[in-house]
Amino acid sequence: MLSELLDLVLPAACALCHRPGAPLCPRCRDAALECLHASPRVAVPSPPPPGMPSCWVSGEASGALRAVVTAYKDEGRRDLHRTLATWLAPALRAAAGAEPAARDSLRGRGLLVVPVPGSPRARRRRGDVPLTPLVSGAAASVPGRVTVAEVLVATRLTKDQSTLDAAARASNLAGAMAVRERHVRVVGGAVCIVVDDLVTTGATLAEAARALRDAGAGTVLGAAIGATRRQVDHHAGLPCRPPLKGSGDRSNVGA
Protein backbone atom coordinates (compact mmCIF):
# COMPACT_ATOMS: atom_id res chain seq x y z
CA MET A 1 0.00 0.00 0.00
CA LEU A 2 2.82 2.40 0.89
CA SER A 3 4.48 1.68 -2.47
CA GLU A 4 1.26 2.44 -4.33
CA LEU A 5 0.81 5.73 -2.43
CA LEU A 6 4.37 6.75 -3.21
CA ASP A 7 3.76 6.00 -6.88
CA LEU A 8 1.00 8.63 -6.87
CA VAL A 9 3.51 11.25 -5.72
CA LEU A 10 6.64 9.92 -7.41
CA PRO A 11 5.57 7.93 -10.50
CA ALA A 12 7.75 4.91 -11.21
CA ALA A 13 10.15 4.84 -14.12
CA CYS A 14 10.81 1.74 -16.20
CA ALA A 15 13.55 -0.30 -14.57
CA LEU A 16 15.28 -0.91 -17.90
CA CYS A 17 14.86 2.14 -20.15
CA HIS A 18 13.94 4.61 -17.37
CA ARG A 19 10.90 6.04 -19.15
CA PRO A 20 8.39 7.31 -16.57
CA GLY A 21 5.08 5.61 -15.94
CA ALA A 22 5.50 1.99 -14.80
CA PRO A 23 8.05 -0.42 -13.30
CA LEU A 24 8.34 -1.88 -16.83
CA CYS A 25 7.21 -0.03 -19.93
CA PRO A 26 5.36 -2.06 -22.61
CA ARG A 27 8.43 -2.28 -24.83
CA CYS A 28 10.72 -3.58 -22.09
CA ARG A 29 8.06 -5.94 -20.75
CA ASP A 30 7.65 -7.41 -24.24
CA ALA A 31 11.40 -7.85 -24.53
CA ALA A 32 11.47 -9.75 -21.22
CA LEU A 33 8.42 -11.84 -22.15
CA GLU A 34 10.25 -13.03 -25.27
CA CYS A 35 12.69 -14.74 -22.90
CA LEU A 36 9.93 -16.82 -21.30
CA HIS A 37 9.16 -20.27 -22.67
CA ALA A 38 5.67 -21.32 -23.70
CA SER A 39 5.86 -23.84 -20.84
CA PRO A 40 8.49 -24.54 -18.15
CA ARG A 41 11.54 -26.57 -19.15
CA VAL A 42 14.17 -28.52 -17.27
CA ALA A 43 17.56 -26.88 -16.80
CA VAL A 44 20.38 -29.26 -17.66
CA PRO A 45 23.81 -27.82 -16.80
CA SER A 46 26.77 -29.10 -18.79
CA PRO A 47 28.39 -30.67 -16.95
CA PRO A 48 25.77 -31.13 -14.24
CA PRO A 49 27.13 -30.56 -10.72
CA PRO A 50 26.88 -33.65 -8.53
CA GLY A 51 23.64 -33.75 -6.58
CA MET A 52 21.82 -31.02 -8.52
CA PRO A 53 18.06 -31.63 -8.31
CA SER A 54 15.84 -31.67 -11.38
CA CYS A 55 15.10 -27.98 -11.88
CA TRP A 56 12.27 -26.38 -13.84
CA VAL A 57 12.70 -22.88 -15.26
CA SER A 58 10.23 -20.48 -16.82
CA GLY A 59 12.59 -18.85 -19.29
CA GLU A 60 16.03 -18.06 -20.62
CA ALA A 61 18.29 -16.09 -18.30
CA SER A 62 19.58 -13.53 -20.78
CA GLY A 63 18.66 -10.23 -22.37
CA ALA A 64 15.84 -8.25 -20.84
CA LEU A 65 14.78 -11.03 -18.43
CA ARG A 66 18.20 -11.10 -16.77
CA ALA A 67 18.22 -7.30 -16.69
CA VAL A 68 14.88 -7.25 -14.84
CA VAL A 69 16.18 -9.68 -12.22
CA THR A 70 19.33 -7.58 -11.82
CA ALA A 71 17.28 -4.40 -11.40
CA TYR A 72 15.13 -6.08 -8.75
CA LYS A 73 18.00 -7.56 -6.76
CA ASP A 74 20.85 -5.09 -7.11
CA GLU A 75 19.30 -1.78 -8.11
CA GLY A 76 16.62 -1.55 -5.44
CA ARG A 77 13.67 -2.06 -7.79
CA ARG A 78 11.55 -4.01 -5.33
CA ASP A 79 8.46 -2.77 -7.20
CA LEU A 80 9.19 -5.57 -9.69
CA HIS A 81 8.46 -8.33 -7.18
CA ARG A 82 4.93 -9.08 -8.41
CA THR A 83 6.09 -9.30 -12.01
CA LEU A 84 8.96 -11.63 -11.18
CA ALA A 85 6.80 -13.76 -8.87
CA THR A 86 4.37 -14.20 -11.75
CA TRP A 87 7.21 -15.33 -14.01
CA LEU A 88 8.56 -17.74 -11.37
CA ALA A 89 5.15 -19.30 -10.70
CA PRO A 90 4.96 -21.60 -13.79
CA ALA A 91 8.32 -23.19 -12.95
CA LEU A 92 7.30 -23.71 -9.33
CA ARG A 93 3.99 -25.29 -10.37
CA ALA A 94 5.81 -27.54 -12.82
CA ALA A 95 8.22 -28.71 -10.13
CA ALA A 96 5.32 -29.31 -7.72
CA GLY A 97 3.61 -31.56 -10.26
CA ALA A 98 6.72 -33.28 -11.56
CA GLU A 99 6.84 -36.41 -9.41
CA PRO A 100 4.30 -38.56 -7.56
CA ALA A 101 5.95 -37.79 -4.23
CA ALA A 102 5.47 -34.06 -4.76
CA ARG A 103 1.85 -34.44 -5.86
CA ASP A 104 1.12 -36.68 -2.88
CA SER A 105 2.66 -34.13 -0.53
CA LEU A 106 0.39 -31.40 -1.87
CA ARG A 107 -2.56 -33.49 -0.75
CA GLY A 108 -1.02 -34.64 2.52
CA ARG A 109 1.85 -33.29 4.59
CA GLY A 110 2.48 -30.42 2.17
CA LEU A 111 5.41 -29.28 0.07
CA LEU A 112 8.26 -27.35 1.65
CA VAL A 113 9.42 -24.55 -0.66
CA VAL A 114 12.89 -23.30 0.25
CA PRO A 115 14.51 -20.12 -1.11
CA VAL A 116 18.28 -20.39 -1.43
CA PRO A 117 19.91 -18.22 1.25
CA GLY A 118 21.68 -15.04 0.30
CA SER A 119 25.28 -14.66 1.40
CA PRO A 120 25.85 -12.55 4.53
CA ARG A 121 27.70 -10.05 2.32
CA ALA A 122 24.75 -9.68 -0.06
CA ARG A 123 22.30 -9.45 2.81
CA ARG A 124 24.26 -6.58 4.35
CA ARG A 125 24.57 -4.77 1.02
CA ARG A 126 20.91 -5.08 0.07
CA GLY A 127 19.40 -4.84 3.52
CA ASP A 128 17.01 -7.72 2.83
CA VAL A 129 16.68 -11.08 1.08
CA PRO A 130 14.97 -10.19 -2.23
CA LEU A 131 14.33 -13.78 -3.30
CA THR A 132 11.95 -14.57 -0.43
CA PRO A 133 8.98 -12.39 -1.49
CA LEU A 134 9.27 -13.73 -5.05
CA VAL A 135 9.06 -17.29 -3.77
CA SER A 136 6.13 -16.50 -1.47
CA GLY A 137 4.24 -14.82 -4.28
CA ALA A 138 4.84 -17.68 -6.69
CA ALA A 139 3.98 -20.34 -4.09
CA ALA A 140 0.53 -18.81 -3.67
CA SER A 141 -0.29 -20.06 -7.18
CA VAL A 142 0.45 -23.71 -6.36
CA PRO A 143 -2.74 -25.63 -5.49
CA GLY A 144 -2.51 -27.69 -2.33
CA ARG A 145 -0.59 -27.46 0.91
CA VAL A 146 2.57 -25.40 0.46
CA THR A 147 4.87 -23.91 3.09
CA VAL A 148 7.59 -21.39 2.24
CA ALA A 149 10.36 -21.43 4.82
CA GLU A 150 13.88 -20.02 5.00
CA VAL A 151 15.33 -23.18 6.48
CA LEU A 152 18.79 -22.81 4.93
CA VAL A 153 21.57 -20.61 6.22
CA ALA A 154 25.03 -19.80 4.90
CA THR A 155 27.68 -21.40 7.09
CA ARG A 156 30.76 -19.54 5.85
CA LEU A 157 31.90 -16.75 3.58
CA THR A 158 32.23 -17.52 -0.13
CA LYS A 159 33.81 -15.75 -3.08
CA ASP A 160 31.84 -13.75 -5.63
CA GLN A 161 30.47 -16.41 -8.00
CA SER A 162 30.52 -14.10 -11.04
CA THR A 163 34.31 -14.41 -11.32
CA LEU A 164 34.41 -18.22 -11.22
CA ASP A 165 33.98 -21.00 -13.76
CA ALA A 166 31.70 -23.99 -13.19
CA ALA A 167 34.25 -26.11 -11.32
CA ALA A 168 35.35 -23.20 -9.15
CA ARG A 169 31.73 -22.29 -8.34
CA ALA A 170 31.06 -25.82 -7.13
CA SER A 171 34.21 -25.78 -5.00
CA ASN A 172 33.40 -22.32 -3.67
CA LEU A 173 29.97 -23.43 -2.46
CA ALA A 174 30.82 -26.93 -1.23
CA GLY A 175 29.64 -27.21 2.36
CA ALA A 176 28.57 -23.56 2.43
CA MET A 177 24.93 -24.14 3.48
CA ALA A 178 23.15 -25.97 6.26
CA VAL A 179 19.63 -26.37 7.60
CA ARG A 180 18.99 -24.24 10.66
CA GLU A 181 18.91 -26.45 13.75
CA ARG A 182 15.40 -25.37 14.67
CA HIS A 183 14.14 -26.47 11.23
CA VAL A 184 15.70 -29.94 11.08
CA ARG A 185 12.46 -31.61 12.19
CA VAL A 186 10.50 -29.71 9.56
CA VAL A 187 12.87 -30.81 6.80
CA GLY A 188 13.10 -34.45 7.88
CA GLY A 189 11.21 -36.61 5.37
CA ALA A 190 9.77 -33.60 3.56
CA VAL A 191 9.43 -33.13 -0.18
CA CYS A 192 11.32 -29.90 -0.85
CA ILE A 193 11.49 -27.53 -3.79
CA VAL A 194 14.57 -25.34 -3.56
CA VAL A 195 14.20 -22.08 -5.48
CA ASP A 196 16.71 -19.64 -6.95
CA ASP A 197 16.18 -16.68 -9.27
CA LEU A 198 18.49 -17.70 -12.16
CA VAL A 199 20.53 -20.82 -12.88
CA THR A 200 23.97 -20.59 -14.47
CA THR A 201 25.99 -23.69 -13.53
CA GLY A 202 23.60 -25.24 -11.00
CA ALA A 203 26.19 -25.07 -8.20
CA THR A 204 23.93 -23.11 -5.84
CA LEU A 205 20.99 -25.49 -6.27
CA ALA A 206 23.26 -28.51 -5.86
CA GLU A 207 24.66 -27.20 -2.57
CA ALA A 208 21.21 -26.29 -1.27
CA ALA A 209 19.92 -29.76 -2.17
CA ARG A 210 22.91 -31.36 -0.45
CA ALA A 211 22.19 -29.45 2.76
CA LEU A 212 18.51 -30.44 2.67
CA ARG A 213 19.30 -34.11 2.04
CA ASP A 214 21.89 -34.13 4.83
CA ALA A 215 19.14 -32.91 7.16
CA GLY A 216 16.91 -35.81 6.14
CA ALA A 217 14.79 -34.37 3.34
CA GLY A 218 13.08 -36.86 1.06
CA THR A 219 12.64 -35.79 -2.56
CA VAL A 220 14.37 -32.52 -3.50
CA LEU A 221 13.40 -30.64 -6.65
CA GLY A 222 14.30 -27.22 -8.02
CA ALA A 223 12.70 -24.19 -9.65
CA ALA A 224 13.95 -20.85 -10.99
CA ILE A 225 12.82 -17.98 -13.16
CA GLY A 226 15.39 -18.74 -15.84
CA ALA A 227 18.55 -20.56 -16.83
CA THR A 228 21.32 -19.58 -19.20
CA ARG A 229 20.62 -20.83 -22.71
CA ARG A 230 23.24 -23.57 -22.74
CA GLN A 231 21.71 -25.03 -19.58
CA VAL A 232 18.13 -25.43 -20.83
CA ASP A 233 16.94 -28.72 -22.30
CA HIS A 234 15.68 -27.45 -25.64
CA HIS A 235 16.89 -27.21 -29.24
CA ALA A 236 14.58 -24.62 -30.79
CA GLY A 237 13.01 -21.27 -30.12
CA LEU A 238 13.73 -17.63 -30.79
CA PRO A 239 16.55 -15.95 -28.87
CA CYS A 240 15.71 -13.24 -26.40
CA ARG A 241 16.05 -9.70 -27.55
CA PRO A 242 19.23 -8.08 -26.22
CA PRO A 243 18.58 -5.68 -23.35
CA LEU A 244 17.63 -2.15 -24.33
CA LYS A 245 20.29 0.52 -24.16
CA GLY A 246 20.71 1.58 -20.56
CA SER A 247 19.08 -1.57 -19.16
CA GLY A 248 22.12 -2.41 -17.03
CA ASP A 249 22.25 -6.08 -18.04
CA ARG A 250 24.87 -7.88 -15.96
CA SER A 251 26.31 -11.33 -16.29
CA ASN A 252 26.80 -11.99 -12.58
CA VAL A 253 23.23 -12.79 -11.58
CA GLY A 254 22.48 -16.34 -10.49
CA ALA A 255 24.79 -19.20 -9.72
Rank of each mutant, 00 (worst) to 15 (best):
E4R: 15
V9P: 02
L10G: 00
P11D: 09
C14I: 07
A15Q: 10
A15E: 05
L16H: 04
R19K: 14
G21Q: 09
L24S: 03
A31R: 12
A32E: 04
L33I: 00
P53W: 03
S54F: 00
W56Y: 15
S58G: 15
S58P: 04
S62H: 09
V68T: 09
A71S: 12
E75H: 14
E75V: 00
E75P: 00
L80M: 06
L80T: 04
T83R: 07
A85M: 01
T86C: 07
P100T: 08
D104Y: 03
L106D: 06
L106G: 03
R107H: 12
G108F: 00
G108N: 15
V114E: 07
V116K: 02
R123T: 14
R124H: 13
R124F: 13
G127H: 12
P133E: 09
L134D: 11
L134R: 11
A149T: 05
L152G: 03
T155S: 08
R156F: 11
T158N: 03
S162N: 05
T163H: 13
A168D: 14
R169L: 10
S171R: 15
A174W: 08
A178Y: 02
R180Y: 06
R182T: 12
H183L: 01
D196L: 05
V199E: 08
G202C: 07
E207G: 03
E207T: 11
R210P: 06
L212A: 06
A224D: 03
T228L: 09
D233K: 09
C240H: 02
V253G: 04
G254I: 10
